[in-house]
Amino acid sequence: MNIFRLAGDMTHLMSILVLLLKIYATKSCSGISLKTQELYALVFLTRYLDLFTDFISVYNTVMKLVFIGSSLAIVWCMRMHRTVKRSYDGQLDTFRHYFLVAACFLSALIVHEKFTFQEIFWAFSIYLEAVAILPQLVLLQRSGNVDNLTGQYVFFLGAYRALYILNWIYRYFTEQHFSRWIACISGLVQTALYADFFYYYFISWKNNSKLQLPA
């Protein structure tokens, strides 16, 4: 474990806490893409298949349970909770995310570390996480003004993978045979997808104005 990875995990946790705060405090999920939440639940479920077979550390296991539990709770809440689901922007959240799932699964069948059930699903989860934010970014562009908590949620979600890139650079220089090309390249693509969001988020922070994504 290094400071970059710990910071990355804490930033990721922060993004989830901000999202939970928004939904529970405002009893609303307006501006949140249910499809992105479903993709993230799938990412965690397919990435942590080794939850009960490989014990790394208490921290690792606890964080995996937190990520799986919170993502499923958010999907459940947006689908089933009487008050929350009424505020879901279903007519704006129309990204065809099943194509993302299919494309990522096909890619995982072609590019993976080892042709085993667990490794293919791990690669699938890495590719899917890289594109999982797309429905959310599309929804933000369509829904015009973005409320603070939603903006912070997306910001922390993007920042965590950028910190992971620093972690991979650090591990590359400090560990002999460290090679995580699948995660590294996918992480670069994932962070690049946030580039324009980060730009508008910075502008809104600098001018102390409402976050506006151009349509």
Partner: peptide, 10 residues
Amino acid sequence: EAEAEVHDEL
């Protein structure tokens, strides 16, 4: 046969 290393990252 390089055994697939355990993924120690989240």
